[in-house]
Write a protein that binds this DNA or RNA. Sequence first.
DNA 1: TAATACATTATATTTATTCTAAACTGTTGA
DNA 2: TCAACAGTTTAGAATAAATATAATGTATTA
Lengths: 142, 142
Amino acid sequence: MAYADQYIDKLRKSGLRPTKQRIKICEVLFDADKTFHFTIKELVKIIENQANIKVSLATVYNTVHAFMKKGYLKEIPLNASQSYYDTNVSHHHHFFDEEENKLIDIHQEDVDEVKIKRTIPGKKIRSVEVIAKIVSDNQSQK
Amino acid sequence: MAYADQYIDKLRKSGLRPTKQRIKICEVLFDADKTFHFTIKELVKIIENQANIKVSLATVYNTVHAFMKKGYLKEIPLNASQSYYDTNVSHHHHFFDEEENKLIDIHQEDVDEVKIKRTIPGKKIRSVEVIAKIVSDNQSQK
DNA sequence: TAATACATTATATTTATTCTAAACTGTTGA
DNA sequence: TCAACAGTTTAGAATAAATATAATGTATTA
């Protein structure tokens, strides 16, 4: 509640109408000081559990996408609408061309080994992959 | 054709029966010297175009998954069945726990900057993300 | 070659996501 | 304050990828 005004502001400044549903979604997403990861379904459940407000799946999709456009949320680049397979089973990385939905290999020698200094107790790293998303460079076309 | 025997061997050694469909799939995937990326649908189309053989979607799915289990193909870790979003919009990377389907942040300071030495003409890099897949480390539990 | 175990297939199912069109709500200005 | 409009929400339909099912077909074996 304390934050509601702040969210109304945030939404207005983004050109989004501050509706009951959007304010509730803001509260769930931004009230806590720590960040978190979620799927659409998880978000719907959290909202149902925390409030009397009913929010449809479609609204959550719309709002999450609107928030992404505004930079309030980020999609984790772990997903594509379909699976891609590779006949090159050696260790290498990829460019993903977002405009053409195409993958391009980056050979291992073109990337320095990625060293992760953090570990998770009881877990080991099975693979490390780098995905570099690329788009047209309009600057260089002038 | 020239490679068919070799593929029959490869399949037998993997405990897969060398059927017409599987041999055709091998030819499409492994005949050329260069590697390539594909989706299931693309593979179905290529097979239809290159041969008289009809292959059902289900067979291609089954075979591609069998080949992955054997290490002949790799799935590009760009996919999850659903999208994950993050309220942390700062630049950082992720662990993905494959057993629990959970994401864990890796802060930027825990990974050295990833430098990619290759460029694609007319394209610029929009984002570089590291996904480290983790699984239980049974070694350390003894 | 017969028996069996494995494969293939068309079709149905499941799941995530997007679309649609009708009902509803926030906003604006008289 | 209220009417009118534009933007929003919603249930349900549509789409699309992936998986499951069960009947038919095929490779293997002895």
